[in-house]
């Protein structure tokens, strides 16, 4: 079994506030209040957000100033009830920290002092109509995704009947050819050769192509082809959850392969357990059809039917009934008698 533990993990150190705004403007109805362009040196380095209620009130000991600062109703009402001088003092102290940006929720209008000091310290100031909790939910998912652990894996990644099959195996074993065959049969290519996998939350692994190689693949002897231009829009997909890793290897007659499928084997990839199937290949074996069956069998198990388990139960019941009925063998026709059936 291949070991994925030596795979290099990649993680973004930071994103610029400029990029954050570009990506979130339409998605989360974010508008920029600052009149000047966004300072390109402003960086977001943390996936969490912060509501600076206590920092505004004066307690700045554990102020996580390097997070996105979200001003909800509480912060805004607190600032509103302060007299002008106190408000300036409070916000001056707040902006003395290098905060990446400030976002006001609920379309609350910013106090003059807030807008002025944000501009003075070139801290971008944004506003959104969403309520704080809802907005936090959106932004947290976005930042989680941006700061997730990623890795580049050598393989082909296809959506087969809605199941993400990641084909792994040494170079030249035929991963791209299998991918092409699956695409021809109506399945969707996510990535070939380089698959970017990303850890989403604690139990989900997402896979995608790279911005350069998406839709392109190399077929030995043919060169580079564009799957989208040949097969059309139905043949491609941006990203997919990785559900089964199919490891292809040359058939080794000294190796014992899985025969019952009772023990599903998992492999850890970026700390997430993924079902793992080792497929020996030899001439004349139709891997494409087997790949479709792997996907469909995965769906059966997902929907609560495990064929190997069912067979095992049937066999155990048969052995027990042999003993009870004092039968000497278990070989019966599946149907004992169909009257006058000559077909």
């Amino acid at each position: 079994m291949r070991n994925f533990s030596d795979i290099k993990e990649i993680k973004k150190e930071s994103i610029t506030v400029e990029f954050f705004y570009e990506e979130c403007r339409d998605r989360f109805k974010l508008s920029k209040l600052s009149p000047s362009p966004i300072n390109p040196e402003k960086l977001i380095v943390d996936k969490d957000i912060h509501r600076p209620g206590l920092a505004l009130a004066g307690y700045v000991d554990l102020f996580t100033y390097n997070r996105v600062q979200v001003f909800g109703n509480t912060e805004m009402k607190y600032l509103n009830q302060l007299p002008h001088e106190k408000r300036v003092e409070t916000l001056t102290r707040f902006f003395s920290f290098n905060v990446p940006c400030v976002i006001i929720t609920n379309d609350n209008s910013p106090q003059e002092e807030l807008a002025y000091l944000a501009e003075k310290t070139s801290t971008p100031l944004f506003i959104t109509p969403y309520p704080t909790t809802r907005f936090a939910y959106f932004i947290t998912d976005f930042l989680d995704d941006q700061f997730a652990i990623q890795a580049a894996i050598h393989g082909s990644f296809i959506d087969v009947y809605g199941v993400g099959l990641l084909f792994a195996g040494k170079s030249g074993i035929g991963k791209s050819e299998i991918a092409l065959d699956l695409v021809e049969r109506g399945h969707r290519l996510v990535a070939d050769d380089i698959v970017m996998v990303l850890k989403k939350g604690e139990s989900v692994l997402m896979g995608a192509g790279t911005s350069l190689t998406k839709n392109f693949m190399e077929i030995r002897g043919l060169g580079i082809i564009d799957v989208r231009s040949i097969f059309g829009i139905r043949a491609i997909r941006y990203q997919k959850r990785v559900e089964v890793i199919v490891e292809l290897e040359d058939w080794d007659k000294n190796k014992a392969y899985e025969r019952t499928g009772l023990d599903s084997r998992n492999i850890s990839l970026l700390g997430i357990d993924i079902e793992h199937v080792t497929l020996p290949i030899f001439p004349g074996k139709n891997i494409t059809v087997i790949a479709e069956v792997i996907a469909l069998n995965y769906l059966c198990k997902h929907y609560g039917y495990n064929a190997a388990m069912k067979f095992q139960q049937n066999l155990d019941a048969k052995i027990k009934s042999n003993i009870a009925q004092k039968k000497t063998n278990g070989l019966d026709r599946s149907i004992e008698y169909f009257e006058h059936d000559f077909e």
């Binding site: 025969r259 019952t260 067979f311 066999l315 048969k318 052995i319 027990k320 042999n322 003993i323 000497t328 063998n329 278990g330 070989l331």
Partner: peptide, 13 residues
């Protein structure tokens, strides 16, 4: 494997 299991051989057989 299907062949072997089809025998459904119980204890004593």
């Amino acid at each position: 494997i299907i062949g072997v299991m089809t025998l459904a051989a119980e204890k004593g057989s």
